[in-house]
Design a protein around this nucleic acid. Structure first.
Lengths: 199, 199
DNA sequence: ACATTTGCTTAACGGTGTTAGATTATTTAT
DNA sequence: ATAAATAATCTAACACCGTTAAGCAAATGT
């Protein structure tokens, strides 16, 4: 009898509902005021049943983090498809990264610890590695052969990442200086780094 | 009778003790597990008396934030004294900023919202403005006269700040790639931005 | 000596994450 | 169809949190 599958589907559905409810609450009231009881309220259950789907609150955050990395990875791959020119790709990819951060502020905070709980085990998340690898590969194609070492590419990657993550963080936490200024800073920095990427 | 002053001194002392205890707990166990009762325990009182010195928990965080900015400002001013050459000053100042962040990880987290509660009213803190002004003034002396506009200097400041804050954040939250790599990235970036500061 | 203020504590409220036990509903077996 | 077993869900509780109100005891002012 197929009732087993129906039940499995229902369980999967409430699992999704929990994640959706959590993200909705966070979007409305911020991470600070996310609580198990509020999630339960929203899915019309009581708090303890959440523990049938997730080990604890951090388990929920972990899963949301993972979906964040998946969305980011999808965005990046779609962006890469617009060109075969590494320099063009790379600039577009960082812009995509930037856009992801502001279209998914809450997820970005969760993923990169801006104003957020620091989940230690985030590094052991393959979805997180995947996005980084896209950048690595593109940078590798951009640098001159004699510079194509792990150390060099890694350094360039972190240089890019630092300035973009820094600018995002400043905007998420301190409210920076408006959109037009951000774009100037970002494009200047990206173009500058790409220009002198082999030095 | 001078007992009034003695008592005032004692009150000031426990106020200091509260702040010291809070910072000590945070250094030992992180911001997450800082609680009023733990602070009270450490200063050998019960929790409610803390409210005679601070409006609430956020008041304590606020005061610690302020001391952070004061320390940073002192560091920066001391660093500026080493030279009269703006380019030399600026590089040394950003290094000092970097060192401050890692010598006072907890305060930095508090001041710049890395993995931390976001106090809205932080912008209305004159001590925070003071440090920024030091950077502004040094950059002003570095750019060519025709570029010495508010907008241009501001953009350069944010470019510097973004990459350094970004690199610090990545290291504080995600544990970057070791000290020698950080230094390479940081010095490369700073030198690069200074080199092309008039473009 | 009495009244008042001060310093501090205990007790409580409503909130949090989480667990154990009881209860109800559903499925399975006879 | 009825009884047993299992699953789904809830209530109650624990220990903690920030915060406030009430009360006690010692110091102070008159």
């Amino acid at each position: 009898m197929g009732s087993k599958e129906r039940i499995a589907r229902l369980k999967e559905e409430t699992r999704e509902n929990i994640l959706d409810a959590a993200l909705e609450i966070v979007k409305e009231e911020g991470w600070q005021s996310l609580s198990m009881r509020k999630i339960a309220d929203k899915i019309e259950y009581t708090a303890p049943i959440i523990y049938e789907y997730f080990a604890n609150k951090e388990g929920i955050l972990m899963e949301l983090t993972r979906t964040g990395y998946i969305i980011l990875g999808t965005d990046l791959r779609a962006t890469m498809a617009i060109s075969t020119e590494p320099a063009v790709q790379l600039e577009a990819m960082w812009i995509a990264y930037w856009n992801f951060a502001f279209e998914n502020k809450e997820l970005y905070r969760l993923m990169y610890g801006v104003d957020m709980v620091c989940c230690e085990m985030k590094k052991s998340m393959p979805e997180a590695e995947a996005s980084n690898r896209l950048f690595f590969e593109t940078i590798e194609r951009l640098v001159e052969p004699q510079n194509n070492t792990e150390e060099f590419v890694c350094r360039k990657f972190y240089t890019f990442w630092s300035i973009i993550h820094g600018l995002i963080s400043i905007n998420l936490v301190n409210k920076g200086r408006g959109q037009e200024m951000n774009e100037l800073i970002l494009k200047d920095a990206i173009k500058g780094i790409i220009k002198f990427i082999n030095e």
